[in-house]
Amino acid sequence: MEVRHTTNPNDVKQYTTERLRSEFLIDSLFAAGEINMVYSHYDRVVTGGAIPINGSLTLEDKETLKTEYFLERREVGIINIGAEGKVVVDGQEYSLNKRDCLYVGLGNQEVTFESSNSSDPAKFYFVSSLAHKQYPTKKIPIEEAEPNRLGSDSESNKRTIYKYIHQDGIQSCQLMMGMTLLEPNNMWNTMPAHLHDRRMEVYLYFDLDQEDSRVFHFMGEPNETRHLVVKNEQAVLSPPWSIHSGVGTNNYTFIWAMAGENYTFTDMDSVKMEELK
């Protein structure tokens, strides 16, 4: 597991493009037959991707976490962004189609990933945060997630938000997780921008249909913005002091996940357009 430390926003002002990408962009989560993970010191969040090919892949990293099993002090949210697969939690199987979500709580000792068809594998994206209480494992297919339709064509941000793990959905300790789908010919997300100083966030961009499609992800303090050029199936770590917004060369989908102090989706501090520089 790769480990990344926190950064001071005053220092980030001096970063080169290469340094900015090495600190905040996760560019290689998904590899056939592997689990890849990044441990961030922002709220101790682990971000990972798994593509099982021949047999199952086990969620574990005792050396980094110094625990007997992965969820000894953690919870995890899993969303499949590939073909059909299944997650096995202490012997209980959960089938996940594309865009289905599974929450696995504190105390479950064995979590494995499998693909239904190795020639067309599942792609499991997951985010894990610390937990202090056990909540039941629960699956929610995208068909059962409540859609929240926002934006407009005139603003280039017509989109549907699906909230999976949150206060009024699947219950957790502090992890919140969901997905936003932009309609065709709509490219902007989270603009006007906002901050939430009480928690960090991770974005995974995917379903960019063309090889040369990109998302320009904006980050930084409102008066000191920077950008990252992001490819399909790459993720961005967003610190509490940073905005997190983006515009694509075409429409796309992204998964957002948050962890920190407050367990309220609407806990955010809006940034006026005139404050952005």
Rank of each mutant, 00 (worst) to 15 (best):
R4H: 02
R4N: 01
D11A: 10
V12I: 12
V12H: 01
Q14T: 15
Y15K: 06
T16E: 04
T17Q: 06
R19G: 05
L20H: 12
R21K: 15
S22P: 03
F24Y: 15
F24M: 10
L25P: 07
N36S: 00
V38E: 12
S40W: 00
S40P: 04
Y42Q: 07
Y42D: 08
D43C: 10
D43A: 12
A50R: 01
P52W: 00
N54K: 12
G55L: 09
E60A: 02
D61F: 05
T64C: 06
L65Y: 07
T67I: 09
T67C: 11
T67P: 04
Y69A: 04
F70E: 01
F70W: 03
F70P: 01
E72W: 06
R73T: 15
R74M: 07
E75T: 12
V76P: 07
N80V: 01
A83K: 15
A83I: 08
G85H: 05
V88Y: 01
V89K: 01
G91P: 06
E93V: 07
E93P: 14
S95Q: 15
K98V: 15
K98F: 13
R99T: 09
L102M: 02
V104W: 03
Q109I: 11
T112R: 00
T112N: 00
F113M: 08
E114S: 14
E114I: 05
S115M: 10
S118H: 11
A122Y: 07
Y125T: 12
Y125G: 04
F126W: 13
S128D: 02
L130P: 03
A131C: 00
H132E: 15
K133S: 06
P136R: 03
K139L: 15
I142Q: 09
A145F: 07
S154W: 09
S154V: 10
E155T: 10
E155C: 10
N157K: 08
Y164A: 03
I170S: 03
Q171E: 06
S172G: 08
C173Q: 10
L175E: 03
L175K: 03
M176T: 13
T180K: 05
P184R: 06
P184F: 00
W188V: 15
P192Q: 07
H194F: 13
L195P: 09
H196E: 01
D197W: 08
D197S: 14
D197H: 08
R198I: 12
R199L: 08
M200G: 15
V202Q: 12
L204P: 00
D209P: 03
Q210S: 11
E211K: 15
S213N: 08
V215G: 00
V215E: 02
H217Q: 09
P222I: 00
E224I: 01
R226K: 11
L228C: 02
V230W: 02
E233S: 15
E233T: 08
L237K: 03
L237Q: 04
L237T: 03
L237W: 02
S238M: 13
S238K: 14
P240K: 07
I243P: 01
I243D: 05
H244S: 12
G248V: 10
T249L: 13
N251K: 07
M258I: 08
M258E: 11
G260A: 11
E261L: 04
E261W: 00
E261T: 13
T264K: 13
D267V: 08
M268I: 09
V271S: 02
M273C: 12
E275L: 06
L276T: 11
K277I: 04
